[in-house]
Design a protein around this nucleic acid. Structure first.
Lengths: 220, 220
DNA sequence: GCTATAAATTAGATAAGACTAAATAAAACC
DNA sequence: GGTTTTATTTAGTCTTATCTAATTTATAGC
């Protein structure tokens, strides 16, 4: 069925999946090119190849979408990645800043067997420390239908932070100082054009949209 | 200093190191070719490249020897490999037959940091379950000067098995049935042209040279 | 010392995936 | 709607590591 993909191909598929999550449109070559740190011409080449393998839908000057087959590959790689990150951090005592790079290399080479052992050791987690979902062994994403970015909540809604979608160390550090960390309870005070006003443990902040859009909240 | 080698290059260096251990001569292209499952022509190409990098001494129609620099690379890869095998088996519950293949892929991608964490978890082991030496963090091999293959011991010498240098499952299984496993005490009864005669827990066997040469004994 | 065989090397081809430079298409601006 | 800017694609090059086929060197037999 899957005649063994190269690491590069897996990287492209994973990246397309991650970029697709943000909007709903096909992912542009430039977008991929910037995130994978390759030139746009290289992206075009690869998209043609992936298209022939029926892993992406691609038409010139249009962009790329994953096919179901491509999505499954992406989910598999993503599962590897997030399980590895979690394993490195929880079991081997790595700092969360260190794990990404290591997982980036390991995700392509671990066997299904090792993946299973790692998942088992971790108690089959559904989310990683940033709240990012970990696809299950049969490649289903956990049900996160009651989680939304801060920017999409209504005034008055309450909940707790369940996901923070930035890897930027300084941003994370800043959020930490503001007690805007995973599990933190908060309430939406206002949705304004220049940000989201929230209340956290007595404090109130006006979070710039840029930041607010990266904080996901589980409502209740 | 070392401008990052490819996985292939690392494989060649590791294999040359392992093949060098057996005899003392330069390793032939054919030998490498068979063990890496590539064609001799490919070996010649690679040896030229490694030679330019000063990782092997290579002269046409002569063979290859590792330089000190090449040996260090090989030791590093070997350390990764054996630590990984041990980790997979001891910590993650893999069977010893399963670990080799997995380690073969992982050995090239783990960071120094992960290597260190793994070594720490394992208590900085000096030998793997087969008795194969694990180079230390500063790439020294443990002192195994009092270990010899059965074939090199004198009649009357006693000791215990400290290394078995075959990966063949059926051979290992056979040795296991004969109680010829790691730590087993034995005595050399005779060195004969068709094998080594040994005594193990009451039993006596005449071990064919082929087999005897793979069993290493720590004398006392 | 010549010949047969085995081993090693050279030369040239291929595949993957990156690149640069040039050409083309689409989008954005008045 | 034409023009400029931006994005994308095409065409061709490079590197790495394989391969096959042909040639050359070394080794063994007699």
């Amino acid at each position: 069925m899957t005649p063994k993909l190269t690491e590069s191909q897996e990287d492209y598929l994973k990246k397309i999946f991650l970029l697709s999550e943000k909007h709903d449109n096909p992912v542009s070559a430039l977008d991929i090119s910037e995130h994978l740190k390759v030139k746009p011409a290289s992206v075009t080449n690869m998209l043609k190849k992936l298209s022939e393998l029926n892993l992406v839908d691609y038409k010139p000057y249009y962009g790329a979408r994953l096919t179901r087959a491509g999505e499954l590959v992406a989910l598999e790689v993503l599962r590897h990645h997030r399980l590895l990150e979690l394993y490195l951090s929880e079991i081997l005592g790595f700092g969360w800043e260190e794990v990404h790079e290591e997982a980036e290399k390991l995700e392509h080479v671990i066997s299904e067997r090792l993946e299973a052992k790692i998942a088992e050791k971790l108690g089959h987690p559904t989310h990683d420390p940033h709240g990012d979902p970990i696809p299950s062994a049969d490649l289903e994403l956990p049900d996160d239908s009651h989680r939304y970015p801060l920017t999409r909540l209504k005034v008055g809604q309450k909940g707790f932070i369940s996901r923070v979608t930035t890897q930027d160390t300084d941003s994370l550090n800043m959020l930490s100082r503001l007690n805007l960390t995973l599990k933190a309870q908060l309430e939406i005070i206002g949705q304004e054009r220049n940000g989201v006003r929230v209340e956290v443990e007595q404090d109130r902040f006006l979070l710039p949209l840029e930041l607010a859009s990266k904080i996901w909240v589980e409502t209740h």
